[in-house]
Design a protein around this nucleic acid. Sequence first.
RNA 1: GGCGCGGUGGCAGAGUGGUUAUGCAGCGGACUGCAACUCCGUAUACGCCGGUUCGAUUCCGACCCGCGCCUCCA
Length: 460
Amino acid sequence: MLKLHNTLTGTKDDFVPLDPNRVTLYVCGPTVYNYVHIGNARPVVVFDVLYRLLARLYPEVVYARNITDIDDKIIKACAETGESMDALTGRFTTAFREDMAALGTLEPTITPLATDHIADMIAMIETLIAKGHAYESQGHVLFAVESMPDYGKLSGRNLEDMLAGARVEVADYKRHPGDFVLWKPSDADQPGWDSPWGRGRPGWHIECSAMIHKHLGDVIDIHGGGQDLIFPHHENEIAQGCCAHGTEYVRYWMHNGYINIDGEKMSKSLGNFRLVRELLKEYPGEVLRFALLSSHYRSPLNFSAELLEQAERSLDSLYYALLGRGETVRAQADYALPEDHPVLEALLDDLNTSEAISALHGIAARLNKAEPADKPALKAELLAGAGLLGLLDADPTGWFQNKKAGDDDLDAATIDDLVAQRTQAKKDRNFARADEIRDQLKDAGIQLEDTREGTRWTRG
RNA sequence: GGCGCGGUGGCAGAGUGGUUAUGCAGCGGACUGCAACUCCGUAUACGCCGGUUCGAUUCCGACCCGCGCCUCCA
């Protein structure tokens, strides 16, 4: 039984899909006005693990992750670079896909673009107006929060509490200060679409509700995103989705914790972010992925060089187990992870990735000391368990030889040649020469290991 | 002011009303020409104060500290 922490109930609940033959998952994707930082990558990786898990448990999983390609931050970025909106959003959408692929994430089933769904948003806004939940005012269309009795149920706040906060934008076109924009007018130099309320553009929240309705249905099973989306974004999505279609909209809400730098939240607005693109120049994507999965998804994760070094060493030890001690072991081909496997059970418990990784180390330890006859099954078990987490997909030899390769490093042929010279020196019992070569390679960042089937080398 | 989260060994980080988390780093040993890898063994822990209990790191209460949200945000 899969258990998921549901923000709506505040508890870890049994996951029971609406339709066990077709599970629906929606995750808020990026606003494409910049390269994404590692904090943006966390939900993508976390929900990638959930997607892999659901795919194992149910016959069909429909996973949608949007691209927000119309937004005031995008308009601002275009003004700064002089690019057209299409060019800018296209460029960063491609970069996002590349970065996420480097982190070993699977493509969602559907990747809807906001600008492809303007008509759906307009239709939804019209429904909200018709049902008395929204109103037009000075070219804007606003959602009337007072029209929804349980507004605030996701974030656990009520309208009075919110007004006590200092940052509510009080605008004269709002009936209630908590009302939020569904549609706003565009100036002549701003991108806009014709609508019943004049030329304008959608508010932030409506795209997700409209795209969920179009692609996944009136009610979906799981909606995920970062904690900072709980309010206002997801609260307002609930308001739109529930009021427009008279349904519960989303059955399980999941939110990942933040990534911190020196104990402070990483965010674009604080400026303390690390771009995935930059990190990928220093670390293999799998190291970043492993680091993101090393703690529970709802806990804050302090991001540091130490974290990444530890992630890399942990991965090394798992890959060492796959590599073996020089012998060639082929993973058992027909292996299937049993239902009560520790890796699976850890993930079923609200995606306990730390415990799942711990279980992987347990398999690796058994593999390391297994009799040759038992190794194919254990190797298959390790690969299958890691596969649920999207890990250990690389060729083990390639992992060690390529992970830190830079342009000015020794190439493989040179290394192989030096290794051959050292092997000959060892054969001649000229250990001084052998050690000299080993030291020379060590200075170049290459470690040697003598196995019973010859010397192998690793980089980094 | 309102709402919420957290404090675990040198570091990272799970979990549990009683008995090993796990990884990295450390220490001792085996293996090795010497190493590396691996294996065997080993030390270091649950913020503070009360309460419940035979027993609390775990449950309850207070306190201290840190963090987040309160209409830009993953």
